Amino acid sequence: MKKTLLIFTFLCCVITGVKAQVVGVDVGDIAPEIDLPDTKGEKIALSSLRGSLVLVDFWASWCGPCIKEQPLLLKLHNAYPDKLSIYGVSMDTKKPLWTGAIAKGKLPWTNVSDLKYWQSPVVGDYMLQSVPLNFLVDKNGIILAKNIHGKALEDMVKSILE
């Protein structure tokens, strides 16, 4: 299984080398920029996390599957604190619900939102139709995987970082 994941990762890297000039949401594309405010109102650009593996996680406080996956994300965050960054993009429209979910889940990673829900520019940029949705992005901003969850996400992160 590890060998298969390593081969898959290698092939993704080879493919991304060919398509790296395209901004889009397919594996091998450069992830579109996101520059939204965090809970304190300070804008944080996705590109500011370049240099590490980044999981762009679209979620909402009202999304059961999103909340259910947070313990795994916390586990990954704690296992690879200097190698993996998580960039949470909330689709909430009410700041108290968003910040309350962050506090309740004890989510230490970057969390941003413009509180516009489906009117946010990132919805179109990432062709967002529902949450949860995520993108695993390499240190150069290239999408390695999308909509990968649970054990598959854990295994892929592990194969890339170990």
Rank of each mutant, 00 (worst) to 15 (best):
Q129Y: 08
S47Q: 07
V22T: 15
L144V: 07
Y87D: 01
P81S: 08
P96G: 01
C63G: 02
D125P: 12
D29G: 00
E42A: 11
P37M: 04
E69D: 14
P121S: 10
K83D: 02
L6Q: 15
S113C: 02
Y117F: 14
P81E: 03
L144C: 03
I102T: 05
D114V: 01
P132G: 08
Q21W: 06
V54W: 00
V14A: 09
I67H: 11
P108I: 00
L72D: 12
K146T: 03
M127Q: 15
N147F: 00
M91R: 12
I160E: 05
M91T: 10
L36I: 13
Q70R: 12
E33C: 04
S47W: 05
S120A: 13
K146Y: 04
T39S: 14
C63Q: 05
G105C: 13
L6K: 15
M127E: 15
K2Q: 15
L72T: 13
P132R: 12
G24L: 01
V23F: 05
S52D: 12
C63L: 06
N140V: 07
L136S: 00
L5E: 09
K116W: 02
Y117D: 05
T93K: 12
K2R: 15
P121I: 03
T16H: 05
P132L: 05
K19G: 09
G100W: 09
L153Y: 07
T4E: 11
Y80P: 10
L53R: 05
M156F: 15
G24M: 01
G64L: 15
W109T: 03
W118Q: 14
P96I: 01
A60E: 09
F10E: 08
L107V: 11
P37R: 10
T99R: 02
L53G: 01
G17W: 13
I148A: 01
E69C: 13
K19S: 12
D38T: 01
K106P: 06
M1C: 10
K68P: 09
K75D: 13
V157T: 07
I102W: 04
T110G: 11
L133W: 07
T110C: 14
A152F: 10
K139T: 07
Y117L: 08
K116V: 00
F58V: 01
A60N: 09
K40F: 09
S85L: 05
K104R: 10
K43V: 11
L161T: 12
T110I: 14
T4Q: 14
M156N: 08
K106A: 08
L46Q: 02
F135N: 07
Q129R: 12
T4C: 06
A31V: 03
P108A: 00
D38F: 02
L107Q: 14
K3S: 12
F10C: 06
A79I: 07
E69F: 13
M127F: 14
V89I: 11
P37L: 06
G141N: 00
A103W: 04
Q70T: 12
L144A: 02
I148E: 04
A101R: 04
Y87H: 09
I160Q: 06
L74C: 06
K43P: 07
P132T: 05
